[in-house]
Design a protein around this nucleic acid. Structure first.
Lengths: 193, 193
DNA sequence: CCTTTCGGTCTACAGTTGTTGACTGAGTGA
DNA sequence: TCACTCAGTCAACAACTGTAGACCGAAAGG
């Protein structure tokens, strides 16, 4: 066994521990209430090291709270609605360490919401492009709002009934709603599989 | 003109200035980033006074971030859905100093989300009671999620298209969705007025 | 008019924060 | 082997925080 791993390897491990700890703490406690000292302690290292490796608290946060954009969506309005429902299902299923960090911290970061806003806006444009309606941007925005609200309700507020429902049940209840918002009238829901 | 208003009156005015300043700052910057000193400065008074009048930062916060519960809702599922839409319309219309404080600060307060969660849960119970479905709690929660997401999208994120849309348009787009979530199938939307 | 009350101000304290810089010791390449 | 690099440690900083308490001066009340 390697009693002393190579220096490069050691560094990689330490950085990874810091990132993991930061992710967890930012997600649990938000930006302000997460201290460099706490991150260092949780990563079993020193505050000075955290600074040296990541520059500043803000840069560390940026590394951890970066939002990977959703899959691009396109197609007929019905197809887009189904794609959005699938994406929502993913957001409700995944372990959420990233999304949670994104949500809680973004809402507590100095320029709060900017990250979430950017991500939602991007998705919104794509969705809007797939609809002919002249209130397309509004409709696309409202689908985003529904998604955001649902994720917050489940993961952040842990709202009774939403917290521990099956993801398929949630998506099932939301399906007619998403279709109704995305294109004028409610669709008869397609039998999946 | 009263060069020197009565002592009691003076006190009332000062307290009011402090409360107004606190409401604004908590809403704009969240709990942690709002300091007693900043509140005092904005109210053109002294940090010590703020402490003397309100006890602590936490008590001051509780005073301004208290959520007044929504109107109770009841009736047939259709009626309940319409009541919820009306309540949503109100939330989108009002100047939101209270609701904004509630949202932004609640999400940044030490025990974040507890207030929002409590308010939503109460409304949720009422709504669930009005539906026969056995997934009533889930459906009620999702209506709450939609409401929450929409308010956040408009006031906090200021999402393009949602930010400056007419409230009636938003409610109009959301009507079939709310009906679809609240009771299984989408209603033919009632012609209002 | 004189004492009491109390709104308002000022100073200070103890703790925490992000951040810096000097230092140590072990791994690394010549 | 020896100089060098660099991961990791430690102590300290300046700024800022919530909070406490002493103090002042004018209104209130007898």
């Amino acid at each position: 066994m390697p009693a002393s791993p190579s220096r490069a390897e050691q560094r990689r491990q330490t950085e990874a521990r810091i990132l993991a700890a930061a992710r967890r703490l930012f997600a649990d406690s938000g930006y302000d209430r997460t201290t460099i000292r706490a991150v260092a302690a949780a990563a079993d290292t020193d505050p000075g090291l955290v600074m040296r490796y990541f520059g500043s608290k803000d840069e560390l946060f940026a590394r951890v709270a970066a939002i990977e954009p959703d899959e691009p969506v396109a197609g007929t309005p019905e197809e887009v609605a189904e794609l959005l429902l699938a994406a929502l299902g993913d957001k409700l299923t995944a372990d959420m360490s990233a999304t949670l960090a994104m949500l809680r911290s973004m809402l507590t970061h100095p320029d709060a919401g900017e990250g979430v806003r950017a991500a939602l806006t991007e998705q919104q444009r794509q969705v809007a492009d797939s609809m002919p309606a002249d209130d397309a941007v509004l409709r696309a925005g409202l689908v985003g709002a529904l998604t955001l609200g649902t994720v917050i309700a489940r993961h952040l507020l842990r709202l009774e009934g939403v917290r521990d429902a099956d993801v398929e049940d949630i998506v099932g209840v939301l399906r007619p709603a998403v279709h109704a918002i995305a294109h004028g009238e409610a669709e008869r829901e397609p039998r999946v599989e």
